[in-house]
Design a protein around this nucleic acid. Sequence first.
DNA 1: CACGAGACCTGTTCGC
DNA 2: TGCGAACAGGTCTCGT
Length: 280
Amino acid sequence: MPELPEVETIANGLRLGRREPAEAAHPALPGLSIERTELLWERTLAVPGPAEFATRLPGQKFVSIGRRGKFLLAQLTQDTLIVHLRMSGDLLVEPLEAPLPPHHRLVIALKGGWRLALNDTRKFARVWLVSDPQVVLGGLGPEPFDPALTPAAFHSILQRSRRQIKPLLLDQTVIAGLGNIYTDEALHLAGLHPLLPANTVPQEGAARLLDAVRSVLQAGIRHHGASIDWVYRGGDFQNYFLVYQRTGTPCRTCGTPVRRIVIGQRGTHFCPSCQPEVRE
DNA sequence: CACGAGACCTGTTCGC
DNA sequence: TGCGAACAGGTCTCGT
């Protein structure tokens, strides 16, 4: 489910709490302390082992909530709790005594009658409890909104690789936070074919692509992320997709039917006319 | 180094 | 109606 804008949306909800709708209202996480934990699917926990996890968390308090790439970071009094939601994960603050819905994988009971729950249908999500977040985040590429990521710097990243531009953008060590939706949308906005070798993208193409990446992510955040299929969380960016999952429907700029191909086992959507295979 | 396939998982939708 | 295949917002690992 979640790419950068969805993780950002979830992080904001945890950080600030929610007042409405009334049945889903919950307090902000910072300030709440942990009573105990219940691990319902062992593999959800990456590090440390279940026994240490269960003894190390109780007594710690949530201090702040952050995000790096697609990782959600919860700073605790002693440690950092890191969550990657992968394909179908979600984090929810719920009343402690509410019946457990299907697919809860980890439940953290909090003081004050609340619990933080990781719900994850496909069981791909992972959780780390570490004293040094760099152990988990160390390999990540730059944050897309980092001002140090200038058009020139981005162009030089592209110059260094002969890989196809789409798989390169999905590589979290190259740039952090992009997934399948926002990559297709950004390449479309920039007018670049997803199969172009990265090092053939000219300076101005790289500048357009960086702009496109940022504006697509901004739009996603503004719309509280995208909600597609049966996984619904309230965002509505799916209504503004230009190419993603619009195979066969007319391109909103030129009317040409949107095409779908497979690149690196990922469905890839683009407009053959706005995103020509060969550069002029 | 770069690429493709397979794993990890469950659930929905599509095609015959 | 039924049933298998394809597909889904991600990433790791292995073989070529």
